[in-house]
Computed example of a mutant assay.
Amino acid sequence: MTRTTHLLRLVGSLWLAAASASQVYDIPAAVSNRTTTALFTSSSSGLDAPKINPVNNSAFDWWYFDVVSTDPNSVASVVVQISGSFPNGTPFNMFVNGDGATVTADDNVSSGDWHGTGFKWIHTGNATYTIQVDAPDIGVKGTISFHSIAPAHYPCGPMVVGQNMEVGPRIGWANAIPDAASTVELTVNGTELAFTGAGYHDKNWSDQIFTTNITSWYWGHGRLGPYSIVWFDFLALDGTEYVSAYAAKYGTIIAASCESNSIRVRPTGQNATYPPHLSTPPPSGYHVTLDLENEGTLEVDVTVTEIVMDISEYTRSVGNMSGVVVPVGGQNERTVMGGKALFEQFKLTE
Rank of each mutant, 00 (worst) to 15 (best):
T289E: 05
M94F: 08
G330K: 00
T36N: 08
M337E: 11
S145K: 11
Y64H: 14
Q163R: 15
V288Q: 00
D301Q: 09
G116C: 10
Q345H: 02
I254H: 10
S22Q: 14
G139C: 03
K120N: 15
H6P: 01
L342V: 05
S317E: 05
T240Q: 14
Q163I: 04
S279Y: 14
G125M: 10
K141D: 00
S228G: 14
S20E: 14
V140E: 03
A247L: 09
P281E: 00
A152Y: 01
V55R: 02
V103R: 09
N126F: 07
S77E: 07
E299T: 01
Y218D: 11
P275Q: 11
E344R: 03
G251E: 14
V67Y: 03
T349M: 12
A29M: 12
D202R: 09
Y250C: 07
T280Q: 08
G89M: 10
A198M: 10
D99L: 05
I177D: 01
A105G: 13
A174T: 12
A174G: 15
D134H: 06
R334S: 05
V80N: 11
E350Y: 12
V80D: 06
G112A: 15
T280N: 14
T4S: 08
P276W: 07
A19Q: 15
I254M: 05
T273W: 05
V140Y: 04
S148C: 08
P226H: 13
G100T: 06
D26P: 02
P151V: 04
G285T: 05
T130Y: 00
L39Q: 12
A198C: 13
D48Y: 05
N88E: 04
E259K: 15
T273P: 00
P136C: 03
G142D: 00
V79G: 13
I149Q: 12
V96R: 06
T315P: 01
A176D: 08
V308Y: 01
V161C: 01
V55C: 13
Y200T: 08
I253L: 07
K203E: 08
M159V: 12
I144M: 06
A19C: 15
G199D: 13
N204T: 02
E166T: 03
V302K: 03
E333P: 00
Y250A: 13
Y242D: 01
V109D: 13
F86W: 04
M1Y: 12
V109H: 12
I131H: 04
Q132G: 02
I214P: 01
I263G: 03
